[in-house]
Amino acid sequence: MIPQPFDYYAPATLREALAMIASGEHKILAGGMSLVPLMKLRLALPEHVVDLGRIPELNYIAESGGVLRIGAMSTHHDIESSAAVRAHCPLLAEAAGHIGDAQVRNMGTIGGSIAHADPSADYPAALLALETKIRIVSANSDRTIDAAEFFVDAFTTALEPGEIVLELQAPVEDQGEGYCYEKVPHPASGFAVVGVAVRVKKAGGKIAMARIGITGMGPRPFRDSMAEKMLESGTEIGQATQSIGQGEEANSDLYASGDYRRHLARVHAARALRTALTRAS
């Protein structure tokens, strides 16, 4: 449980950090809740580690113009407890509260988490349901993409070498929206065997808008637009969630088979939707 020797850099500014990582040879430490355990197991053997933890300009949460902006180095605890997140994107705060344990939430960051793209991470489900955009920068580029484009495969994102996540931009949820994050945690790791994030809007006793993001079930998180459309066109929840995950690959491990995960995604989507509806006004 001892890592190999490595060089450690702690830049103080974003500019400095981006210059350091431009070559793409560096491993980025953004909280270290995934990287450090892998290094201790000697599964990750980086020679150069650049710690973004001392760059104040990456740690902020602010709302402006209907968009909630979250700096990449905001910790899960920051997000879980932020008044702005709770007011404008309560779904994200709820998902953050389900991550790991208190120590992990105090150290781990949203930028680090999504860049790692663990297929069982909690955030992606919420980010997809919230239709979040992700701003990515490098020493000589600056682009903003949809969360749906960001998550490519297990541990694989749209980040190119030299790029980092700068900011997450979530449209502020409308007043009266209902939301819910339902999670089946693995009893050992606490990772999501399946996690379902939903948002709903009611109009005239019906579902006017539904968003469903699912994590843990397959190699990458996904939004189930078919189920969303069915719900929006009046299909009852039980029936609309029956097709969730159809056509998506499902993960299997010692604890849960792919079939079971798919089943859990359906059951918990229905439960999350019911809770969200009771929260919607």
């Binding site: 197991l41 599964l43 297929p119 069982s120 495969d153 297990a154 541990f155 694989t156 693995h186 790791s189 990772f191 190699p219 690959e249 993960n251 299997s252 491990d253 010692l254 604890y255």
Partner: peptide
């Protein structure tokens, strides 16, 4: 230590 991800990774 990688049970959670071995199959997913192999498929990928």
């Amino acid at each position: 230590v990688g049970q959670r991800l071995v199959e997913t990774t192999a498929r990928m």
